[in-house]
Amino acid sequence: MMAYMNPGPHYSVNALALSGPSVDLMHQAVPYPSAPRKQRRERTTFTRSQLEELEALFAKTQYPDVYAREEVALKINLPESRVQVWFKNRRAKCRQQRQQQKQQQQPPGGQAKARPAKRKAGTSPRPSTDVCPDPLGISDSYSPPLPGPSGSPTTAVATVSIWSPASESPLPEAQRAGLVASGPSLTSAPYAMTYAPASAFCSSPSAYGSPSSYFSGLDPYLSPMVPQLGGPALSPLSGPSVGPSLAQSPTSLSGQSYGAYSPVDSLEFKDPTGTWKFTYNPMDPLDYKDQSAWKFQIL
């Protein structure tokens, strides 16, 4: 009977010793046993002879290597770790002494450095960015050149030099007046198309007034536009458009034309069986010896 009264063996659950049927240790109110408190290391007290050895090595170098620390530790009968900690504390003490010396050398008012006064946003004049500046400075420094007289040679050079070769001289006033084509001369031969040399188009003023001019072949195509416009036809070669000034309004060009419109200028042929003959000019830059190549039959 006494065997049943004795408590059973101890069981360990999660490293906790349980005594038989008792489960009081598993209750929430019972805390787990805490780790033992780490003991504080005792402070090391250095003797005068030990301090002399350490100070002598510190005077040589503030960062001794492990071999120098072990050698000193053997002399003063201390572990190497204590020597390492002593050098660490000695360097910190040396830095603190240097900072105190710097503070003593500075004057009393030198510690508080005078800061520059901050400028207020409204006091300083700042350039306004509302208006974009002129990058080319046209509004201040540029002045347009004065327009020359209508009959000045410089204007003629600016007008005619675009179309004339570089080897030719500017046309005088008398020749510029001949550039304007007359109405009857352009409409006299509506079906004849003559190819003149390129030099005649640039230099010869008579080429624009003769039936064999460069633009005589364009007349049949330009004249039928007159009834559609409801007024006189516009002429690209009329009046002052080739003269001194090219800047004319469309209203000033509306009254200039080749001449009176005639039914002869239409595109319809009077004789459907007729042929169109292209007159060959020996001055043509295209060297075609066979003139029969310039004739064709309209079917």
Rank of each mutant, 00 (worst) to 15 (best):
F296Y: 01
R82M: 12
W86Q: 15
P9V: 10
W86R: 13
Q28C: 09
T154H: 04
Q228P: 09
L218R: 02
S235A: 08
A233K: 07
Q97W: 07
E70W: 10
E168I: 11
R40T: 11
P36I: 08
T61K: 14
S34D: 04
Q96T: 08
Q97P: 11
T129M: 02
A68D: 08
Y195A: 01
L253E: 01
Q84L: 11
A293R: 12
A200Y: 09
Y4H: 01
S81K: 05
S152A: 09
H27I: 13
P79G: 07
A59G: 03
D130K: 11
L253W: 05
R126D: 08
G259P: 04
K295M: 14
P165Q: 01
T154R: 09
G274P: 03
Y191W: 15
P220T: 06
G183N: 04
P108G: 06
L186P: 01
V264Y: 03
T44R: 12
P197R: 11
S81Q: 01
L25S: 01
D134R: 09
K93C: 15
R95W: 15
Q99S: 09
S81M: 04
G274T: 01
T44I: 11
A73N: 13
A56M: 04
Q100D: 07
L74I: 09
K120T: 01
P125G: 09
L18Q: 00
S292V: 10
F201Q: 00
Q106W: 05
P125Q: 08
R48S: 06
D134N: 08
S203W: 15
G122I: 12
A207F: 13
H27Q: 02
V264H: 06
F87H: 15
G259E: 05
A114E: 04
V66W: 11
S206E: 02
D24L: 14
Q103G: 06
R119I: 06
A196D: 01
G255C: 09
D290F: 15
L218I: 03
F46K: 13
N77M: 10
T273G: 01
K93W: 12
E70D: 03
A15L: 12
Q50T: 13
W163R: 02
T279S: 02
D65W: 14
C202W: 13
F215C: 01
P31M: 12
S292Y: 13
S210G: 06
Y63K: 15
P135S: 13
Y280A: 00
T194N: 05
Y67P: 04
K75N: 10
S257P: 03
S257Y: 12
S141A: 05
K120I: 02
A247N: 08
S245C: 07
P127H: 07
G148Y: 09
E42G: 06
G148D: 05
Q106R: 09
S249P: 04
P250V: 10
W86V: 13
P285N: 01
E173C: 13
A200H: 09
F201P: 02
A121K: 04
F296S: 00
